[in-house]
């Protein structure tokens, strides 16, 4: 099927990861809120994880376009 699903997955998680990192950085001083996540700024940490995951998917999609699978 013409659409490589790695594109939308990659874009969506990169976007959400980026949003989480920005939001995490902006709220870093909010000690009260991060008490819930046991003092860690989980937004920044997990935002980075999501960014990496999204980037990996996009990379896969780029490589997939260069070497189309033989079928």
């Amino acid at each position: 099927m013409g659409l490589d699903i790695r594109w939308p997955i990659g874009f969506m998680f990169s976007l959400v990861g980026l949003l989480l990192v920005i939001y995490g950085a902006a709220t870093n001083s909010d000690v009260e809120m991060y008490r819930r996540s046991l003092g860690a700024n989980i937004n920044i940490i997990w935002g980075i994880v999501l960014l990496l995951f999204g980037a990996g998917m996009l990379l896969g999609a780029v490589l997939g376009r260069k070497n189309p699978p033989k079928s």
Binding site: L20, T27, Y34, R36, I42, W46
Partner: peptide, 11 residues
């Protein structure tokens, strides 16, 4: 509710 601050909560 207990563990997720806004952001992760939305996720």
């Amino acid at each position: 509710k207990r563990y997720c601050p806004s952001g992760i909560l939305g996720l």
